[in-house]
């Protein structure tokens, strides 16, 4: 589904190289966790997948469903099923979640040659999603993230993910700033959305999220490269030993 080959990227503003040769292959239905210390480039990778313009790809390729992802506008990626759950979701006063999501869903449907959902159809559709994730209905009428707590913002990201029904879900430090209850709700939401055709790339600093969302693969990103890959036990090893023991490995690459 997703093939990243020898990906190099810089910050557009100051030419600083952040990613220095990433290789990653994600198949349908798989959950990949990307772990790494601060500044390793993991959030950059997540944002590049969604098309943030602050970065520039200097080498390598990203292929998604046999298409070159790097050439697509952010909205085009969304239409083709890429979703990024933001580390810092944006507050949009004056725009209700319902309005926002209906605009998003209908933009996607239009781009994919489907007819737009009527207001009534859409309300029925999102109420089901609210129920699926065990959320409160007032979420629908509230302005997007306005005045939301950290936990509410992250839950809203997962809710949006549920509504947009993406094929590739990228979670950027979705666990940061969450207490254990919020973390469990968010994880339960993600688990409810796991399916054969849907893949996840979960970027996280800590192992604890992976207690609730069990990954198929764990990759350790340091200094812009994946220095080690393994199964879920690698995350536990990291939790125990920290990132220090990998310094030599990173230096040798």
């Amino acid at each position: 589904m997703l093939e990243i080959k020898n990906l190099h990227a810089i910050v557009a503003e100051d030419d600083k190289e952040i990613l220095r040769g990433i290789n990653l292959s994600v198949k349908p239905g798989e959950v990949h966790a990307i772990m790494g210390p601060n500044g390793s480039g993991k959030s950059t990778l997540a944002n590049i997948l969604a098309g943030r313009e602050d970065y520039e790809i200097t080498q390598g390729s990203i292929t998604y469903l046999d298409e070159d992802l790097a050439d697509m506008e952010p909205e085009e990626r969304a239409h083709k099923g890429v979703f990024l759950a933001f580390q810092y979701p944006v507050e949009i006063p004056g725009v209700s979640n319902t309005y926002f999501l209906r605009a998003a869903v209908n933009a996607k449907r239009t781009a994919n040659g489907e007819s737009e959902m009527s207001s009534m159809e859409f309300m029925k559709f999102i109420r089901e999603k609210v129920k699926l994730l065990g959320l409160k209905e007032d979420l629908l009428t509230r302005s997007v993230n306005e005045g939301f707590s950290g936990g509410e913002k992250k839950r809203n990201e997962i809710f949006q993910m549920a509504v947009l029904e993406p094929t590739l879900c990228v979670l950027d430090e979705t666990d940061s700033g969450l207490d254990i209850d919020a973390l469990q709700t968010v994880a339960a939401g993600v688990n409810a959305l796991r399916s054969e055709g849907r893949s996840f790339v979960i970027v996280t600093h800590y192992q604890r999220l992976l207690n609730y969302i069990v990954p198929d693969f764990v990759h350790i990103l340091m200094d812009g490269r994946i220095v080690k890959s393994g199964d879920k036990s690698l995350a536990l090893e990291l939790e125990e030993k920290g990132y220090g023991w990998l310094d030599d490995l990173a230096a040798s690459k």
């Binding site: 506008e73 909205e75 969304a78 944006v90 926002f100 999501l101 605009a103 933009a107 949006q160 947009l164």
Partner: peptide, 15 residues
Amino acid sequence: TFRFYMRSRGIPKAE
């Protein structure tokens, strides 16, 4: 940042 958030949800830039 606002614009990118909305575009990442599939809403075209002008909209």
